[in-house]
Design a protein around this nucleic acid. Structure first.
Lengths: 147, 147
DNA sequence: GATCAAAGCTTGAGTTACTGAAGCACTCGG
DNA sequence: CCGAGTGCTTCAGTAACTCAAGCTTTGATC
């Protein structure tokens, strides 16, 4: 019966279970790599979200948490010398978070050291890599609410 | 040049960026749905990890955190009536976390209410769903370190 | 152009998450 | 037995997080 390949189409629940497992494992790899450089996962996540300058408020949006929370996270990043606050040109209420050179370096190190993630990518052939990438990009606008 | 389709094979960095974005968005959808039922994301994650009975120690492994941390999380789940601790038959040191009926119901509600995730699944055709599912399953053993 | 609602950030209080070290209860090999 | 090791909890101590309240600045309205 199966038309081309052996697989049957998975249900939403099955997809969700599989995605959740992959997401959790990815996150653990990320957190472990960040910890090796003295960063909490929140801090590393924030660092990844400020690769280009972002106002505090918008950063809270990206991280999906309260603005008052971001104050503390950026305080710590600033204390570590990985980012700094700059005044906005147009609006004096706004403070813009800018990543430092050192911040950029550490972010690259963390990403480079996610060995399980890299290993898992190596099990994919070109076709699978392309498929995964395009599926991610297709799904992202809906999933993140920026339709 | 391009052989069959328009896509070129993405680099590891591109794949990682895309995966990170999808993972973050998925997690936010999850956390928001959990919050609507009065659960923190840690609590909801723990609930999902005890669909079958699990010893405390093993649960810590699944959640990727210290065992002492799990004590507090399970305390709160127990206080909410969503899970309970049972003695292990063979080893009296071990306590096994068992999800309650109410816990199972709330977990199902939370998963059912992840509307962005469900919406994003709807943008995938059968072929893409199968591809995503099989890629997740293929990648999982390496990514989670259970090779 | 003074007023006032609203936006952006911080502070403070209070809970949860998390770690590391220490402690107790139990197991198991000698 | 006894002693090393395992499983869970407790106890500091820090970070993450939320909500409410505060301050400055903005922008629209009168």
């Amino acid at each position: 019966m199966g038309s081309t390949v052996t697989t049957t189409v998975p249900t939403n629940a099955e997809l969700m279970e599989a995605l959740a497992a992959v997401g959790a494992a990815y996150f653990q790899d990320f957190a472990a790599a960040a910890a090796r450089h003295g960063l909490s996962s929140s801090q590393a996540k924030a660092l990844g979200a400020v690769q280009e300058p972002v106002p505090m408020r918008a950063l809270a949006g990206r991280l999906g948490c309260d603005a008052s929370n971001v104050t503390g996270i950026v305080d710590r990043l600033e204390a570590l010398g990985l980012a700094r606050r700059e005044a906005s040109a147009g609006d004096r209420r706004v403070k813009i978070v800018v990543i430092s050179e050192q911040g950029r370096e550490i972010l690259a190190l963390v990403r480079g050291e996610m060995s399980r993630t890299h290993q898992s990518f190596e099990t994919l052939d070109d076709e699978q890599r392309s498929a995964l990438h395009s599926i991610c990009l297709q799904v992202l606008p809906v999933l993140s609410g920026r339709q």
